[in-house]
Amino acid sequence: MGQLRPPSGRRGTRVAAWGVGLRRRSCDRRAKELTVKISLGYIGAGEWGVKKHIAAIEYVRDVLGDTNVELTALCERDPARAKALAKKYHIKKLYHDLDEFARDPDINCFSVTVTPSSLVSVLPALARRNLPIFCEKPLGTSYAEAERFAAIVEACNVVGFNRRFYPIVTRFKEIIASLPPPVFVDASFFRHGRTDSLDHASDPTRREPPFVIGTAIHMINLLEYAIGPIRDVDVTELETGWFCRLQYERGRSARPVPGALTILPCCGKHTESIEYHTADVSVGLLCSLYGDLDYPGKIVLTKQGREQQIIDGSIDSPRIVNEGFVDEYREFFSLVRSGGTSRSDFRSAVNSMRIAEKIEKW
């Protein structure tokens, strides 16, 4: 196929004119897209949902100017809480019954931020409407559930693995895409004082998933997004954590890329990091944005033992932007209006759950 050329015209002006035309058509398409109303049905408005998800929806509408976004309906079991949230966020309709909420004809998409164990009843009820669904991670409590949910939700969908939407991660992914394949990838996911797995060991009746499936799956999913699908994992249990030897897919004819992931739920740090090593260049990503120590993230490029470049995250952007929540919803609303596939859809979440379950079977 020949090289793509701009339309003919007066010499010296045609490239600029062609570029302007492309930008104009893109802007026109975006403007037309924004005229489509988003009538969102929201379920799961707990503290986290309000602080991050409803706040992100409001940011898209009020700060970014997408005025055709509306929180149309809320499903909440606590009547007093539902009434207070409806008043604060100008939500027109309140539901306490899931089936009635799912059937509301004014809703054209759903956002789900319930607990993972509640998805087994919520997602099938909503999937029957065949409307776009945003769902907070993880996609259920097991690999089997994740596979089932990915199969029954046929409309466009997004899973809230917000690391995929960090601006600093987008930059990191662009940088490593310009490099040769890695010889090794090292990653860490550290927290302090997280006793989820110990709590499960002492109380096997707990319904919510333990630490790796519920929280550290963020890093597993981010590695699959940045590096590639994880083929297999070999796990060594530590006194308070896991050391994981990973193999990343590189196509049928290529040897898998080796890597390591250390998960510590109880240590002295709160950090998330990836180091991408080629034969002569290393790129480090520091991306734990919920604590002040690493905020707003950093990328360090090193070559032959010397730092070549340091790229800091934006200190001027609001946290809710740096933490990816705003771009999650911007992408979701774009899918509602125009269709397509998310960078973080249900299907992309399934293998991450398989790997998480192999690390911490419960």
Results as ranks from 00 to 15, higher is better:
residue 182 P to G: 12
residue 171 R to K: 12
residue 201 A to E: 13
residue 54 I to T: 07
residue 312 D to S: 12
residue 8 S to T: 15
residue 50 V to L: 08
residue 291 G to Y: 11
residue 152 I to R: 05
residue 284 G to T: 14
residue 147 E to F: 11
residue 358 K to Q: 15
residue 283 V to W: 07
residue 157 N to I: 10
residue 112 V to Y: 00
residue 135 C to N: 03
residue 200 H to S: 05
residue 197 S to N: 10
residue 194 R to T: 04
residue 203 D to N: 15
residue 305 G to D: 09
residue 151 A to P: 03
residue 186 D to T: 06
residue 263 I to G: 00
residue 216 A to N: 04
residue 157 N to G: 02
residue 154 E to V: 12
residue 9 G to C: 15
residue 288 S to P: 10
residue 165 F to P: 05
residue 301 L to F: 12
residue 268 G to H: 15
residue 206 R to L: 15
residue 22 L to Y: 10
residue 187 A to P: 00
residue 307 E to K: 08
residue 40 L to A: 09
residue 2 G to D: 00
residue 131 L to Y: 04
residue 197 S to V: 03
residue 279 A to G: 04
residue 171 R to F: 06
residue 284 G to V: 12
residue 63 V to H: 05
residue 199 D to V: 11
residue 183 V to R: 05
residue 99 D to N: 15
residue 139 L to V: 04
residue 119 L to Q: 15
residue 291 G to F: 11
residue 209 P to C: 06
residue 276 Y to H: 03
residue 304 Q to K: 11
residue 197 S to D: 11
residue 159 V to F: 01
residue 160 G to R: 03
residue 295 Y to E: 12
residue 108 N to M: 07
residue 257 V to K: 03
residue 10 R to C: 13
residue 78 D to I: 04
residue 56 A to C: 08
residue 94 L to D: 01
residue 165 F to R: 04
residue 267 C to W: 06
residue 128 R to K: 15
residue 312 D to M: 11
residue 236 T to A: 15
residue 201 A to I: 13
residue 333 F to V: 00
residue 246 L to I: 06
residue 112 V to W: 00
residue 196 D to M: 11
residue 264 L to K: 13
residue 168 I to P: 09
residue 344 S to E: 01
residue 265 P to E: 08
